[in-house]
Every structure is written in C-alpha cells, then in structure tokens.
Simulated assay, not measured.
Amino acid sequence: MHDTGTDRDICDRSVVFSRCRGKKYSVGASDTEIKIGHTTAYSGPVSAFGAGGRTLVAYFKMVNEAGGINGRRVNVISLDDAYSPPKTVEQTRKLVEDQEVLLIYGVSGTPTNSATQRYLNGKGVPQILIATGASKFNNPKDFPWTMPFWPSNGLEQKIYVDYILKIKPEAKIAVLYANDDYGKDHLDGIKAALGANPGSKASIVAELSYETSDPTIDSQIVNLKASGADVFICASTGKFAAQAIRKAHEIGWSPLKFLTNASSSVSAVLKPAGLENSVGVMTAAFLKAPNDPVWANDKDVKDYVEFMKKWNSQDNPNDFYATVAYVNAAMLRHVLESSGDDLTRDNVMKQVANIHDVRLPLHLPHVVLKTTPQDFNAFRSLQLQRFDGEKWTDVD
C-alpha cells in the first residue's frame, strides 16, 4: 500500500532518480538491489578473459551470502562480447536500456571500451574500473564517466625502456602490436619513453602489427627476427603472446623479451607457449602471484585461494585473469560501500575520483592507489619481474 503524494510513490515507480526515506538512487539501485553491468570475452580469440568474468560473478555471490553491500544484493549481469567491439556495443546497450544497470564495470580491452565510451558518457552511465591501460580513458575533462583501473600503458612501457637502456644501451628493439587501440597505445608508449632519452643509441628497428582475427603471427615473428633485433616487446593479447614466444623459440631467436602484464598469465599464456620456452621473459607486475613461495603464508593469498576453491572451482587460482578480477571486484566493493545510501551515478563517480591509499588484497606491497577528479589513473608504480620457468620473480 502506497502513501499518496509521498516520496514512497516516487520510489515505487522506479524513476531514474529517487529519494526514498532520505536515500538517493539512480536507475539500477534500490533498497534491496544494486545492478552491475559487465561484458567480457567468454568466446572468441581471447576467451581466456572468461576466467575474469566468472571470478567477478563468484565474488559477489560470496558478498551477497554475507549480507551484500550495506544490506543490498549486488546483481552482476555479465554478458559475452567475444572481444568484438560491435558485440560490446550491442551487449552494453542491452545492459543499459533493457536491464537498466546502475553502471558498467570492469570491461576488458581497449577496443571494446573504446566502442562504448561515447555512448556511455552521452547517457551519463559510469564506465568504471575498466581493464585497460590506454591513455585515452584517463580524460576526466572530456569523458567524465569513464575511469580506467589498470596500470597505464605508458607507465608500463617506460619501465621496460628504462630497464633496456640500463642493460642494453644500444638495443635494437622489435615490437609486435595489435592493430587496434590497445596495441597502438603500447607502441606510442615505447616511442614516448625512448623519446624522453634523446641521447640514447637504442632504437626501434622493426614494428609489425597483427589483426585479432589472424590465425597466427608466425610470419611477423620471422620478419622481426630478420631485423636483427636483440630486444622484443610483445604488445599483444594472450593467444598471440603465447604464439610469439613459441615461434621465437622454434626459429632460434633469443632476444630479451617483454610481455605486457595483460598477457602475463602463467596458465593461459606461458604454459601454452611452453614453460621452458618462456624462461627469461619479463613483465611489469602489480599483483602477488598465488603460486609464488614467497607468499605461501600471506593471508591475502590464502583467502583468495580458499575463495576460488569454494566459489569458482572451474578456474585455476593461478590464472592471472582470475586474480585480477578478484582484486578489481574488491575495488568495486569498496566503491559501492563508500557510496553508502547515495547510490546515484554522480556519487559513484565521486567515489572513484577520490581514491586515497586504498589497499586491495593481492596487490604488491609497494603499489599505491590514488585518484583525483583531474587524474583517474590509480596506479603509480609497478614491479619489474622475470619468469624463471615456474613463476615470476622480482627484478631489482
């Protein structure tokens, strides 16, 4: 029964913005529920991302069993976008217009997020904690509803270039990159880092791209070897990173190799490439590796492994995409908890624009998270690591 002419009437009609007994809601939130929209590649060339989607859904099942967020059930609606931008647009429209979610969260990939950025900003729907480090997503002035949650590609490539200049001052660098926003942004990051050292004799001697629909990148690896490069930076998604490592080994090319951290999963990338073939590969990390003996007694790691056993036994706890999703889900939980009873889209963006010294489970100890309304890049540092045949180990 409704109280005619009161705010209760407004709440029951589920209008876009409601005031219910002093509580504030945008569409997708209520006294009992928070609806979260998410897409990732459960199929297609980077279906390994699916481990992240399953972990995200499982995380909030755990949260809901424990009472939800401030008494509200979190309903995560996760759809398959196959890492195809047109499919991402289709699924995102479905989430926003049909499912009426409060926000879009944690979508993997630069091209997929690029495809929906203008649409979501035009409708004032938060596009937050997205899994891409492309510089274009940290633009609060022009795209105030978009917030990345991945170390920037520029920061990552600067770490690689700084290390290269230290140990190979005259390095000849070969780059393989995806012919999309993701790969091009990494390539730009390499060039910017080299450009910041004008006296250096290191240079890019070859750069070749691939299409996500390509079956292999074997010919690119053969041609990159022919360039005479002694350093190889692979700015690709996981499937092609595995192919690159394997093919380089097959043709006897042994440059110093770097993989972007998005393709550093031991189980999804290095194992298919051949663990023995991957020895010496480097990356820039921000997470504790659950199978690293140094973290054997770490409470965060123990809690995570137990979570995976109970809530997502389908996926390997050591899968990088599962680990990332678990950590990023913890960040979303923090944002929703911080929003309190003001579950409006405006307040959600206020929370993600004011992250200060938040410590997330499984982040390496030195990782600092900080955002401001003028700078949405949360990550300020990374840890250079090398693969020893079994696990990633820190490099000083």
Rank of each mutant, 00 (worst) to 15 (best):
K23D: 09
G28L: 01
N316Q: 00
V352Q: 00
P126Q: 15
G274L: 01
N377K: 04
D375A: 03
V327Y: 13
L256S: 12
W145P: 01
A248G: 14
K288A: 10
S265M: 04
D342L: 05
I355H: 01
A51W: 02
K370L: 10
L343F: 02
L259K: 07
M331T: 05
A171L: 08
I159L: 15
L176V: 09
D292F: 11
T371D: 04
R359P: 07
H2N: 11
S203I: 03
S267I: 10
Q351L: 10
K191A: 15
A241D: 12
S213L: 10
S135Y: 04
F379C: 07
E170S: 14
T40F: 01
A329S: 14
L194E: 10
F17H: 06
N347A: 07
D12K: 01
L208K: 14
S227L: 13
D31G: 00
E207Y: 05
P365F: 06
E276C: 09
L102G: 09
T146Q: 01
V279M: 06
R380N: 00
V368Q: 12
V125R: 02
G274T: 08
L362S: 07
S47M: 13
V27C: 00
N354V: 10
H38S: 01
V279H: 00
N316M: 02
A241T: 15
R380A: 04
W392C: 15
L187G: 00
Y25E: 02
M62E: 12
F17S: 12
Q157W: 05
S265V: 14
S26N: 13
T112V: 02
G154Q: 10
S152G: 13
A235M: 14
D142H: 00
E390C: 03
